[in-house]
């Protein structure tokens, strides 16, 4: 093959194009981890149509969706804790967990409805059940969960029918786990590069983040004598969240970049600081009232910031054509090298 200008590519480039579509200058120094991989993407070159994004960024409402992610995770985790609490002698912790779970479930439903462009048509969500649509599956998780969680919380308030209440608690706990983790799939099952690449990790991040928040809030609302399971649950969640978030932020080459940069990077650094501090406070002074409240608040804040940060990183990766084009180019090149003889493109 000659490398003459009539060969593919042909030396054509856009007239009056921007000086460079390499983003060397744009990269930031601070807050980068996993240098090896991130450094490799400094020199990437790619072509785009006047710098416009290839895919459409999500049109979801902010902050409704991030708060929905937060409340879903936190109330789901709290509901599980509450259901187990029903069968141990921890009446106040059980009650706090269920009151928060019920409130969070109501908030989730409200936020989801507000996010729809046509709220009056929420019921269309339940028109079909589609395993290929995480939002459809999620609607079928959220609906029974919120009904049962609100009922359980209501029975706690009424203080009657303990058997019915326990049934409600167990029922809501069945849907609570999937509720806390499906949101990871919800974000990842899109063409948004930084979410899609982390598709098998985000469910763990969101689930663990829900544990930290739900456990932390339950701990803060309960007397310390009863709250030992909440403390352990919350700290376990915080540790898993930090570990999986580290993978999300470093495992995916160029599409991990948005997790470090700009607003998303700042949010996620704050999230890590809050979660780590919250876990440390809980372990150190969680057995005292003030420590429990502070630790719980920090863990909840860390969890919320994680949602906002992950969301923001995805938005950034959708807005910049680099994150769509470069990985696809690399994929094509790799395939071409794999069987150079059969590919004619």
């Amino acid at each position: 093959m000659t490398e003459g200008i009539a060969t593919p590519g042909g030396g054509w480039r856009r007239a009056d194009g921007p000086p460079a579509e390499t983003r060397g200058k744009k990269r930031r120094k601070g807050g980068r981890r996993g240098r090896g991989e991130v450094a490799m993407v400094d020199d990437v070159e790619f072509t785009s149509y006047y710098g416009r994004p290839v895919i459409k960024p999500p049109v979801w409402k902010s902050p409704e969706v991030q708060l929905y992610l937060f409340f879903g995770g936190a109330s789901g985790a709290a509901a599980i804790l509450g259901a187990l609490g029903e069968f141990t002698r921890r009446p106040v912790m059980t009650r706090s967990a269920h009151l928060f779970a019920g409130g969070g479930a109501l908030a989730s439903v409200g936020l989801l409805i507000v996010d729809l462009g046509r709220p009056e048509r929420f019921l269309h969500m339940l028109r079909v059940f589609k395993p290929t649509s995480p939002l459809s599956v999620g609607s079928y998780i959220l609906s029974p969960f919120s009904a049962l969680a609100v009922a359980t919380a209501g029975l706690h308030v009424l203080g009657r029918w303990p058997v019915l209440r326990r049934l409600g608690a167990v029922g809501s706990a069945v849907f609570a786990g999937p509720l806390a983790t499906y949101t990871g799939v919800l974000l990842a099952n899109t063409a948004v590069p930084s979410w899609h690449a982390a598709g098998t990790q985000l469910p763990y991040v969101f689930g663990a983040s829900g544990m930290a928040a739900g456990g932390g809030i339950t701990m803060a609302l309960s007397p310390v004598a009863e709250a030992a399971p909440a403390r352990r649950f919350a700290v376990t969640g915080a540790v898993i969240e930090l570990a999986y978030m580290h993978k999300v932020e470093n495992d995916h080459g160029i599409v991990s970049e948005p997790y470090h940069e700009g607003k998303a990077g700042a949010l996620l650094r704050a999230a890590k600081a809050c979660t780590a501090a919250g876990a440390a406070v809980t372990v150190a002074v969680g057995r005292r009232r003030a420590g429990a409240v502070l630790g719980g608040a920090l863990l909840a804040a860390g969890s919320a910031l994680t949602r906002f940060g992950v969301y923001e990183a995805g938005m950034a990766s959708a807005r910049d054509p680099k994150y769509t084009v470069v990985p696809q180019r690399e994929r094509l090149e790799a395939r071409k090298n794999e069987h150079a003889s059969t590919i004619t493109r």
């Binding site: 806390a180 099952n189 469910p203 663990a208 649950f233």
Partner: peptide, 26 residues
């Protein structure tokens, strides 16, 4: 959707993880 089965699997495992962690904690 090509990668959705793997994601659902992860979500299922993560949900079990939460229940397991809660059981362990209690």
């Amino acid at each position: 959707t090509r990668d959705l089965p793997a994601m659902w699997k992860a979500a299922g495992k993560a949900a079990v993880m939460i229940v397991g962690a809660a059981l362990g904690a209690v």
